[in-house]
């Protein structure tokens, strides 16, 4: 009940922010998030040996981006071009460098994270509470802006090295206590 209420709230928030974004006639919520995902990739170091070409972004449980990912398709991260794997494709976690877990996959989150295990996959979510539940970077809205939280324990588990600059910008660091 509580979780469904929370989901509803999140939905409302998303809608509101979507409306706000639409009002601003600037980039939409998922345009910003797509750009942030690209910047994250630039500020995070994958463990040696995992730097294969290209840099694969796996969309898990749905594609809320639509056209919003198009700009980053042309970008590269340290010389690696992006490759977007749509949610319809069967997910082989070894092939993913970044995994965006949509809200729709919320029910399966624990199973998904368990499946990823300690693989060097940057998990990104945009739902309230994902950070505490083990997603490494989770978007959340605040003051009509998009912020993110970083679960350092989860990142350590995945063997990812997150730039201090990025950490400095993260508003919340859930699971820090758990890690300690």
């Amino acid at each position: 009940m509580a979780s469904s209420l929370r989901a509803l709230l999140a939905l409302l928030t998303a809608l509101l922010s979507g409306i706000a974004a639409a009002d601003q006639t600037g980039p939409g919520e998922y345009d910003v998030k797509a750009a942030y995902i690209h910047h994250f990739a630039r500020l995070i170091q994958w463990p040696d040996g995992s730097s294969r070409e290209p840099l694969r972004l796996c969309l898990v449980g749905g594609d809320p981006f639509g056209q919003a990912l198009d700009p980053i398709r042309a970008e590269t991260v340290d010389g690696r071009p992006w490759q977007i794997l749509p949610p319809t494709e069967a997910i082989a976690w070894d092939r993913c460098d970044v995994a965006f877990i949509s809200r729709a996959a919320g029910a399966d989150l624990s199973r998904i994270l368990a499946a990823i295990g300690r693989r060097p996959v940057l998990t990104i979510g945009d739902s309230e509470g994902y950070g505490e539940r083990g997603v490494i970077i989770n978007f959340f809205p605040e003051n009509r802006k998009i912020h993110f939280e970083i679960n350092l324990a989860a990142s350590r588990r995945a063997g990812l090295n997150i730039s201090s600059q990025l950490l400095k910008l993260a508003r919340r660091l859930p699971g820090e206590g758990e890690a300690r």
């Binding site: 910003v32 910047h39 730039s163 600059q165 400095k168 910008l169």
Partner: peptide, 14 residues
């Protein structure tokens, strides 16, 4: 150098 990421992530406070 220190402010670059703040701009990237649109964080004037930082």
């Amino acid at each position: 150098l220190n402010a670059a990421t703040a701009i990237l992530f649109d964080d004037p406070q930082a």
